[in-house]
């Protein structure tokens, strides 16, 4: 947990030296650079791995929701 907070702090501190202006964001706006997985694909994947693996999370989305345990 401490390492995670440190990582967040390091990333946040980098923001001052890597400013990319809106007109320079053509490549960042590509579909693959924002979310290469549609919501339906991501939802099914989380459902699938959640019903076969003991680990879950890391997506910011609630897993579970079914009697797949």
């Amino acid at each position: 947990m401490r390492r995670l907070l440190l990582s967040i702090a390091v990333i946040a501190s980098l923001s001052g030296c890597a400013v990319v202006r809106p007109h320079e964001r053509q490549n960042l706006a590509r579909r693959e650079m924002t979310a290469d997985r549609d919501p339906g694909e991501a939802r099914f994947r989380q459902h699938q791995t959640g019903s076969r693996e003991g680990a879950d999370g890391g997506t910011g989305e609630p897993g579970g929701g079914c009697g797949c345990n």
Partner: peptide
């Protein structure tokens, strides 16, 4: 909690932490 940072015109990184 999540943090997403643009590192340049072609690079973006993110960290997500979930507590369930």
């Amino acid at each position: 909690a999540s943090v997403s940072q643009i590192f340049g015109e072609n690079t973006v990184g993110a960290i997500t932490y979930d507590l369930i």
